[in-house]
Design a protein around this nucleic acid. Structure first.
Length: 200
DNA sequence: TAAACGATCTGCT
DNA sequence: GCAGATCGTTTAT
């Protein structure tokens, strides 16, 4: 594996195998990295949403397992990529195998491979590269083919804790773009970030 | 096989 | 802030 672009260690299964809202909150400030060819692309996670296994009608797992949401029911630390409005969004599976809970990664602060992200997005403006779940996937080069990859062992993809990373101020808000369970505060943001999909 | 829907994005006002 | 584009998945006929 090519050396990481920062001094950091990979998040392991014990991090993901916990209640989803906690994982979503603690993913704020972690580094998301994807290796494309010889290059790492990614940045700091600044916005996430929790989608629960039980009692959450906004969650893809609410009506049980189907061919298209199978990876959401996989092991904690599995990547779940799903198509929406002709685009893709990426999640990290949480809790226990078979439960169907995950964290949607909605926005990052672009840090590594910025020119590659600009090229994939067709925009130069930093603010428009990764401020939304589908923009993020396009910038990182994540699509349907990446569904079910393992964030724990895949050498070219993972979430990392930087050794010198400052603590981020985390705020919780209502989730974006859903029609059910709107009131639940399961969106988590870095309160100081300029790279959120929406202000809070 | 047809129709409706959606964890979205963009451009324009 | 709003309308329209866009296409895979799900649900209805």
């Amino acid at each position: 594996m090519r050396p990481l672009p920062l001094n950091a260690h990979r998040i392991d299964v014990t991090f993901y195998a916990r209640p989803t809202a906690i994982v979503a909150r603690e993913l704020i400030g972690k580094a998301l990295l994807h290796q494309v060819g010889p290059l790492w692309v990614g940045g700091w996670i600044v916005e996430t949403e929790a989608y629960l296994d039980k009692g959450d009608p906004a969650s893809h797992s609410f009506r049980g397992q189907t061919p298209s949401n199978t990876s959401m029911f996989g092991d904690p630390g599995t990547l779940y990529v799903y198509p929406i409005h002709a685009k893709y969004c990426m999640n990290a599976v949480t809790q226990n195998p078979g439960e169907g809970a995950a964290v949607l990664i909605r926005a990052i602060e672009p840090v590594w491979g910025i020119d590659e992200m600009r090229r994939r997005r067709g925009f130069d403006e930093l603010r428009r590269l990764t401020r939304g779940p589908a923009m993020l996937c396009q910038a990182l080069g994540i699509d349907r083919r990446d569904d079910a990859r393992c964030l724990l062992s895949d050498e070219g993809l993972g979430v990392f804790q930087a050794h010198d990373s400052p603590t981020r101020p985390v705020a919780s808000t209502r989730r974006i773009g859903i029609s059910k369970a709107k009131h639940r505060k399961l969106r988590f943001v870095d309160a100081d970030s300029k790279f959120l999909s929406r202000s809070f």
